[in-house]
Design a protein around this nucleic acid. Sequence first.
RNA 1: CGGGGCGUGGCGCAGCUUGGUAGCGCGGGUGCUUUGGGAGCACUAGGUCGCAGGUUCGAAUCCUGUCGCCCCGACCA
Length: 597
Amino acid sequence: MRVSRLMLTTLRDIPSEADIISHQLLIRGGFIRRVAGGIYAYMPLLWKVLKKITSIVEEELTAKGCLQTLLPQLQPSELWKKSGRWKSYTEGEGIMFNLKDRQGKELGLGPTHEEVITQIISETIHSYKQLPINIFQIQTKFRDEIRPRFGLMRSREFIMKDAYSFHANENDLKSTYLEMNNAYQNIFKKCGLDFVAVDADSGAIGGAASQEFMVTAESGEDLILISSDGKYSANQEKAISIIEKEKEFTAIKKPSIIETPNQKTIDELCENNDIHPSQIIKVLLYLAKGEDNKKYPVLVNIRGDQEVNEVKLSNEISNILNQNILDIRPIINEDLQKQNISNIHFGFIGPDLSDNEISKAKAWEKTFIRLSDFSASNLKSFVCGNNLKDQHRLFYNWDLLNIKSKVCDLRKAKAGDRCLHDQNQKLKECRGIEIGHIFQLGKKYSTSLNANFTNEKGIESPFWMGCYGIGISRLAQAAVEQNHDDSGIIWPISIAPFEVIIIIANIKNDDQKSLAEEIYEKLIKNGVDALLDDRDERAGLKFKDADLIGIPWRIVAGREAKSGLVELHNRKSKITESLDPKSVFKKLSQEFNTKKL
RNA sequence: CGGGGCGUGGCGCAGCUUGGUAGCGCGGGUGCUUUGGGAGCACUAGGUCGCAGGUUCGAAUCCUGUCGCCCCGACCA
């Protein structure tokens, strides 16, 4: 390709719409154009990148015996109602675009394809003899993000690879899950990314084990926790840890009630009463909205120095109620007023807050779902609210409170906590961009969609399923976020839009021109993805553009062209050598580590 | 959803407070000069100032509404 034909439009100024570096560089380099909020056109340069990522993915998955397919984006609501996700995807998170056709039939624009593929597999696969099957698609998917941002990182229309596997038993699923884990490691390594695999919550997709693949970057939207020895890593939503023991009371005295006027916060309580946050039971009230549209008040006990992980909380409530939770949020004073509740005093609530207090609530269920984090239930003696304004209880214990509360892990793990696998290891924090996610779905979708096969014993049984996603367009941007400098992008060679750019310093100089053309022809003939900058522009401008769009290797036919020498420059190392064409080919073929040239 | 900010040639912005019919830089075109790190000079094209109402002799500027975009937050008392 010649730059004169490339519709290359680079920008000198930073576009005002972008505020993270990768987004800015993609726009400045002419890789993407915004069409609407969260909707982008992939320009020819980026499309080349996406295709390279795509072929790496296809290659690795094919090597694992996966099949490729293309599925509809427009999907009937019935299918999603069967799986039970229509409501939570259109109402709760509201993440699925949905519409009605002229017949009035409801359709959704696929954010993911479990339903469709499960339906199809159940129609075509009937026997264990045909299993396992692992089938994938690479295509545009849609999510009506609350707040699209960061360009391709969180857009409403994006390119995604999703693979779905179907198995006769759990062990087979597990072995495919491991295979896919391995394939993902290969894919991301080949793409030249620095990444980490972390334990993850399976979220709205549901299912058992799941891992996310994160590109580490400051601008990442996810917080991840990693042990110092690297053996444990998890998304904060999922992370588990051991906390420091509570501070012991110097002397435990008789349980008593203390006056705590206006001491609503943990800090105020500690300052005024000489106690430590870890000696307090913090009581938090939440309101969970179920799929049945009922609103469930939730009372959570946790140690005063700890925080609640709302993902864990939501999962726990979902288990208890045996339904999806559409929304969970803390109850605020305004809610109490609306429900005509007057006897609950935030800041002074105790674990034994009576259900009577919410009996008047018009729109809520009449009893609390009561949960305690281990950090709270493990305390032998503690401070807690007395359910009356300006009063707390000191040296209290669970026997005295006499309430039933389900004990579970609801705590947000944080940097500095100790690790379960080795108590000498502590967790560190870093941020990551999620580029891949693998799940063991189990039988959730096959059961709800009635997708069965006949097993060895002749019995009908639902498929065991796994699903495995990679955000292709997001990955491209994550690569930029991780690989750039002040001058622009530095693409990893495997996904660079071009491997080499040949610059003719002065197009009017025939020596330079013919030497460059000669090298370009030879590279192209040998399968190197080469770009020739043949524009009638000043050399400086061409250098700036080449740096900005991040081509890994640059060959310049310039000053020394007359004596048959060109410059070979590496974008990343910034090392420049003066070589004859033969040496350039030799060097490049070594660097590419292929039979090219 | 809540809060904040911004919409002025392709891009980045000024002008708005104090109304008088639009300007700068980059980019585009032509010519000359220049030619190894976003060149110089000259000429030139390109905007009904997001949209719709209103106030006014007169609105980019004031008022009302509306649409779009960007950022922050979404409650741990």
